[in-house]
Simulated assay, not measured.
Amino acid sequence: MIRSKRFKHLPIVCTCKARRGTGFAAGGVAMPGTESVLGPGFDGLEKREVQRLVLLLRPAKVIARSGEYLCILRDVASRGARLKLFHPLPRDVLMVLELGNGDRYDIEKIWERGDQAGFVFTHAAQLEHLLVERSRFRKRPVRARVDLPAQVRAGSVVLPAALCNISQQGGSIEGDLPLSVDQRVTLAVKGLPELDAKVRWRRGNRVGLVFEQTFKLDELARLLHRLQPFPPAVAEDEKDAIFRRAMEG
């Protein structure tokens, strides 16, 4: 497949309208692995309400009361999504799906089998918006919110800090840290490998780091899963899905 220069920033996806009562796309071409986003027992709902199935592999995270879990958004339809997992999910039924651009969607878990899980959106999602994944921010890897004690070594000086979030390529730490931009440091966090990094930015007591060696998505997901649970995430906006979830008690 060749992408034109005009559309090279868009993900490669495949959209299809399934024939009623079949597992084939229009034209009779089988779509391997796309038999049902919602899972067994929900075929009737899909036939009535799911208009399109969109295949895409996009890093994302699921937010539950016990923590944040990295995953891959495997495919979506107008009423649901299927995720590829790197570990079992918590028993929560109601969760939040967050994409790389920060967009969040309330989701309800319908099934989980092996390394995949099916969810329905509690509010209908616009497929076009999901596909383009517009953002006012520069595109960046999905970050998992954490709250872990850490030590930062800068030369012969060791400083206490807290790791606030982490992605495949970097993270942010907080503390009384007399560090300068571009300074090289080593970050030590129990449960994670020792990380050589460079200071990318600083704002008040927050310092952003970029790692010299990046994580694979599945590697980081499994490491963070072993370090759960974390306190529930609470947003300031009452319309925010995480805020509503936390306020439900």
Rank of each mutant, 00 (worst) to 15 (best):
S167W: 02
M1E: 13
L187E: 06
P149R: 01
P231Q: 05
H9I: 09
T15G: 10
A124I: 14
E46N: 03
Q51L: 15
R136K: 14
G171I: 10
M1G: 13
G23M: 07
H225P: 01
H123D: 07
L127D: 11
L70W: 00
I166Q: 01
A154V: 14
E35R: 15
I12P: 02
R52W: 07
L10A: 04
R113F: 07
I110A: 03
E46R: 05
A233I: 14
S167F: 02
R74W: 12
A241W: 11
D218Q: 12
V37D: 01
D92P: 00
G27N: 10
P59Q: 12
Q151L: 13
V189L: 11
L89C: 01
R82L: 07
V181N: 07
P193H: 09
L223S: 09
F7M: 10
I242K: 02
L177E: 00
A161L: 05
L56W: 06
G21Q: 07
L45I: 15
V185G: 00
R3G: 00
G28H: 04
Q183E: 12
S172Y: 08
E108F: 05
R202M: 02
F230A: 12
A26M: 10
F42C: 10
K190D: 12
N205T: 11
R203Y: 11
S180P: 00
V158Q: 09
C14T: 13
L38G: 03
W111D: 02
A81L: 03
R153K: 09
D115S: 12
G155H: 10
I12Q: 05
D182M: 14
A235G: 09
A77T: 15
L57M: 13
R74G: 02
R113G: 02
P40C: 07
K216E: 15
A154I: 13
G27F: 11
T34P: 03
E128T: 12
G41P: 01
S66N: 13
T214H: 15
L223K: 13
D115N: 14
V96K: 00
V54D: 06
E49V: 13
V62W: 09
A162S: 13
I12T: 05
E174R: 15
D147C: 14
P229V: 05
G80I: 09
E174D: 04
K239D: 15
F119D: 00
A18Q: 09
R104D: 04
P160D: 00
G67Y: 01
R245V: 02
M247R: 06
P88F: 07
A117I: 03
L220K: 01
I2T: 11
R184I: 13
D196W: 05
I12M: 05
L209D: 05
Q116H: 14
G155A: 08
T122N: 03
V189D: 00
L131F: 09
L97I: 01
P178K: 06
F42E: 12
A60M: 06
A150R: 04
E236R: 07
T22G: 06
V93I: 08
V62N: 11
L148W: 06
